[in-house]
Design a protein around this nucleic acid. Structure first.
Length: 582
RNA sequence: GCGCCAGUAGCUCAGUUGGAUAGAGCAUGUGACUUCUAAUCACAGGGCCGAGGGUUCGAAUCCUUCCUGGCGCGCCA
């Protein structure tokens, strides 16, 4: 609708230019936007305001000329000139109703597939396998997943890349401890069931015992040289650690599986080649023994050029090297047209350098878009990075446990008669929805405050509210005893709130496009909240089953049905499941 | 020192890339359950959009100078 109006206006500009009312070389910038205030219609444009000066007259006069030239068409019921010269468009109800009908008849709910699907690589989650997943991984995992699902739904080919940390010196001490435990006859899988304390133990021994440290360093060397027993030990560790991750993904409803895992170690063999190619491209400089790439656009302390170090003086490689190799792999092997990184915003300098160097080195096609989708830190209620009461980094598993049990307790309070197994199920869904929605609803790039109390509260803009809205629709259909697929009849939008609801319903598509473009699921959350909130108001004010006439009942049932479908689809794109009752 | 980001209601956050009287939720106050789940709805109060200057028909948004906070800046990732 927006683009339709824009096109009309564009044509009018041309007419006005032919009439020499406007300079011929003018390309005005104007917007067509949904209004906030309903008294301003459904859409408004500022076109007349931007044209007033070039036309040498006042905005309202320009507006009148534009309105006079607007073609007659069904979609718009009324046009008004308002305020300083805005032109307000009022949508015709029957047109609105027809859009709702169309969306209902469409299995994609009125959301078209993109005309040109892209290969889009998304790097997200990417935990360090040496430790257990903690709060720090939550945002990357959840936001990245929501964007992946959205892009996929729009018809793109999404290639998920879980760039796990499965390499590096820290594995030396872990393997050393595994070895020691095995010699003591202990069962390794048991020992690794609590990865966090295993890591702590290894670190402690590494710091305390010179013998242990020496052995750890030796194991790193063995690992790098491909020693078979050492590699087996390493793989055993990865297996266990990855299955920890997978368990969390499954609990969280994150669409990452083993096929997405492509860790740092996958690029080991390519690293010398990366260095050689950088050299060949004339980008490599040796500085204080380290191999660096200097780019003019990056300045460090004292205004000196800032290096990206790709090889240490001891010959070792760094994450910059691995990232370059990964970028090239994604371009060449995965044929990426767009590459998204859901990584902490604090690494933005690193990504700027990475992208710039990769382009200079020819690792990327010029047309490929690379975007660092940075996100802020999860803060505790004290305003500092989120920690447990004991001051430790909070494990993701513990966080989920707590959310689920809090949710379960609240559900039990509302439903004293509900049996335990149903409470468990609902508690799980609501708990996960609470965590995910609270995170996704916030703007990606800023820090956000993590608060169980706020997110599990069943009031207001929360996960539970969204789920509740859905169950209310579901409940109507249980009672209505109609076949959802056989609903028919006209949709009539008589009440103001029905109009509002219909208007929301047909906005789904444009919201998804923006989420996909900018990597910002909070826009989808905001939209779904507005939809749920409009529905709640509709639910209160417009009896569905008890409607006055059969026509009205059918019409309202159809509004309910589309609301339910969009809520379910929208939440599913956020990776949030729905419940039929709660 | 240089660079990046943030500062909006008591609290948590939006603000459609420059538009109309700055919006939600929580909290506070009031009203609404014999009718589809009150986990809801309706209404009210609450603001120097960090401060100053500039750009223009029009600024929370763009430029600029400050203030405050966070983060980053050579061999960790």
């Amino acid at each position: 609708m927006k683009t339709y109006v824009s096109e009309q206006l564009q044509q009018i500009i041309e007419v006005l230019q032919q009439q020499q009312f406007l300079p011929a070389d003018l390309t005005p910038r104007f917007t067509v936007e949904r209004t906030r205030d309903k008294s301003h219609g459904d859409f408004a444009t500022n076109l007349a305001l931007t044209l007033a000066k070039p036309a040498g007259t006042n905005p309202r006069q320009v507006a009148e000329k534009i309105v006079a030239l607007l073609p007659d068409k069904g979609a718009i019921k009324k046009v008004e000139i308002a305020g300083p010269g805005f032109i307000n468009f009022f949508l015709d109800e029957t047109w609105l109703a027809r859009q709702v009908k169309n969306a209902l008849d469409d299995s994609r709910l009125g959301v078209a597939q993109v005309e040109r699907p892209q290969n889009i690589v998304i790097d997200y989650s990417s935990p360090n396998l040496a430790k257990e997943m903690h709060v720090g991984h939550l945002r990357s995992t959840i936001i990245g997943d929501a964007v992946a699902r959205t892009l996929e739904f729009l018809g793109h080919k999404v290639i998920r890349q879980n760039h796990v940390g499965d390499w590096g010196t820290q594995f030396g001490m872990l393997l050393a401890l595994m070895e020691e435990r095995r010699q003591q006859g202990r069962e390794i899988s048991m020992e690794l069931s609590d990865l966090e304390s295993f890591y702590r133990e290894a670190k402690q021994q590494f710091d305390a015992s010179p013998d242990f440290a020496t052995r750890a360093r030796q194991l790193v060397v063995d690992l790098q040289s491909g020693d078979a027993t050492c590699l087996n030990l390493w793989r055993e560790f990865l297996d266990i650690s990855l299955s920890h991750c997978q368990k969390l993904y499954d609990r969280l409803g994150v669409s990452l599986g083993p096929d997405a895992v492509h860790g740092e170690s996958a690029y080991n063999d390519d690293l010398p080649q990366v260095i050689a190619d950088l050299d060949k491209a004339g980008l490599l400089t040796e500085d204080q023994g380290a191999k660096c790439v200097f780019l003019d656009e990056f300045k460090g302390q004292d205004g000196n050029p800032l290096p990206m170090i790709v090889q240490k003086k001891d010959g070792g490689y760094l994450y910059a090297t691995t990232d370059l190799a990964a970028l090239r792999y994604r371009q060449k092997q995965l044929s990426a047209e767009r590459i998204l990184y859901f990584v902490d915003v604090r690494q933005s300098l690193h990504f700027q350098q990475l992208f710039a160097v990769a382009r200079k080195a020819g690792f990327l096609d010029p047309a490929t878009r690379t975007e660092h989708m940075g996100f802020g830190t999860v803060m505790g209620e004290d305003g500092k990075p989120f920690k447990t009461r004991s001051g430790k980094v909070a494990k993701l598993a513990d966080l989920i446990d707590e959310a689920e049990s809090r949710a379960r307790a609240l559900v039990a309070e509302k439903n004293p008669q509900m049996d335990a197994s149903e409470l468990d199920d609902i508690g799980r869904v609501v708990g996960i929805a609470s965590i995910k929605y609270a995170d996704l609803a916030k703007n990606r790039s800023s820090d956000y405050l993590f608060s169980f109390d706020n997110m599990i509260s069943f009031e207001g803009d929360t996960g539970p509210y969204m789920l509740y809205a859905y169950t209310r629709v579901a409940s109507i259909f249980r009672k209505a005893e109609v076949d959802e697929n056989s609903l028919s009849g006209e949709i009539v939008l008589t009440e103001e709130i029905e109009r509002e609801l219909a208007n929301r319903l047909i906005q789904f598509s444009e919201i998804l496009t923006r989420v996909a473009e900018r990597g910002t699921p909070h826009l989808l959350c905001g939209y779904l909240y507005d939809l749920a909130s409009s529905f709640s108001s509709f639910y209160k004010n417009c009896p569905v089953l008890g409607a006055d006439t059969e026509t009205e009942r059918n019409s309202r049932l159809q509004l309910c049905l589309l609301t339910a479908r969009i809520l379910k689809q929208g939440l599913s794109l956020l990776g949030i499941g729905t419940l039929e009752r709660m």
